[in-house]
């Protein structure tokens, strides 16, 4: 790996650990308030979502601003999102519910926001597992198809947040807008590419007829 790429990755690696360090420091100083468990789990959930949306923002950044570095850290940011999701889920299972499996099962079945969140977590696992170069090579076309799942997962993550909120939906609504923008760009690009494809075919056909 080139040393500049290495430095870029190292910098983002450290940056992705800052929220976790902040959490640990706050915990140490009692800065998490009266209900530290709730605060901790929500904080981890927040950062899972930020990093997931961040991952989805990298490709548009690359395309719109012709930057190369966003694509180099995309996998890492995606994996960090998964890392925070794992901590978020562990926090829920181990600290919030304290392995009360009966209650956890009920929660997953009965609470739509937990159902959605849990499904998103499960869907993220194959993406994380197949994130290596080797898997990417081995799966070829399938790899891309599998990793398109990140879009429904991101939608599910925002829904999970939205349905959890008691009344004030300002924050989930904001992230829904960000996600809509990121997905909208992709849809726009996909449509224009199809159009380009159609014209190319038309040109080709014309050429064939003329020939």
């Amino acid at each position: 790996m080139e040393s500049s790429t290495y430095r870029l990755k190292a910098a983002f690696f450290m940056a992705c650990l800052i929220p976790l360090a902040w959490l640990a420091i706050q915990k140490g100083f009692g800065g998490l308030g009266a209900n530290p468990i709730e605060k901790m789990i929500r904080f981890l959930g927040d950062w899972s979502l930020y990093l997931l949306l961040g991952t989805l923002a990298l490709t548009p950044m690359h395309r719109l601003f012709h930057l190369s570095w966003p694509t180099k850290i995309r996998r890492m940011i995606g994996l960090f999102s998964f890392f925070y999701v794992c901590l978020h889920v562990t926090g829920y299972l181990a600290i919030d519910q304290f392995f009360d499996w009966h209650e956890i099962r009920r929660d997953i079945i009965k609470r739509p926001f937990i159902t959605v969140g849990f499904v998103c977590f499960l869907l993220l696992i194959p993406l994380a597992v197949t994130s290596t170069n080797k898997m990417q090579r081995r799966m070829r076309r399938r790899w891309k198809q599998l990793h398109y799942f990140v879009y429904p997962i991101a939608i599910g993550a925002v829904i999970h947040f939205w349905w959890m909120v008691k009344k004030d939906i300002t924050r989930p609504a904001f992230y829904a807008m960000v996600l809509a923008l990121l997905l909208g760009l992709r849809i726009y690009w996909a449509l224009t590419r199809i159009k380009v494809g159609v014209t190319e075919t038309a040109v080709h056909e014309k050429a064939v007829r003329r020939g």
Binding site: I37, F98, M164
Partner: peptide
């Protein structure tokens, strides 16, 4: 009687670890 979005069977007493 659950809240439609979460269970009301348990509660966390502020300051305690276990529900």
């Amino acid at each position: 009687v659950d809240h439609p979005r979460w269970s009301q069977r348990k509660e966390r007493r502020i300051g305690e670890f276990f529900k």
